[in-house]
Write a protein that binds this DNA or RNA. Structure first.
Length: 115
DNA sequence: AACATGACATAAG
DNA sequence: CCTTATGCCATGT
């Protein structure tokens, strides 16, 4: 069963454009409450559809969770599908350079207002 | 209801 | 940079 909060969270994450990343806290805030950061991580961890490798993103439930990093740009060590390595590959695939398991937020941080 | 856990954030040492 | 400690919220036992 997907809760209201999860819906909001997934909805926000789905809006992150390719080539950009958003922090858990940012997603939480956009979803409605700044303090859901931890919950966002949990929600994504048990996320039903993590991402689509080569799929054409035809499904509305696709959630690009690899574009979500922590406040310092660090990747998720316990990334559900394949760990941090998988997340790295997915990001690199979108031209988001990953160095030392981190990304440069100055370059890739997603700013919703600029959509 | 109580307690433990987690893909977090922030502050402090 | 790293480790602790504290606070948050949602879940699972």
């Amino acid at each position: 069963m997907i809760s209201e909060t999860d819906m909001k969270i997934y909805d926000i994450v789905r809006q992150i454009p390719a080539g950009k990343v958003a922090a858990y806290g940012t997603v939480a805030e956009l979803a409605g409450n700044r303090r859901w950061a931890q919950a966002v991580g949990n929600a994504l961890h048990r996320n039903p559809l993590p991402f689509s490798l080569e799929n054409d993103n035809s499904s509305d439930m696709l959630i690009p969770c690899h574009r979500v990093v922590n406040a310092k740009g660090r990747l998720a060590v316990n990334f559900a599908a394949g760990g941090i390595q998988a997340q790295t590959v997915l990001l690199e695939r979108e031209n988001v350079h990953v160095v030392q398991n981190s990304v440069d937020l100055e370059l890739y941080a997603w700013h919703p207002a600029e959509e």
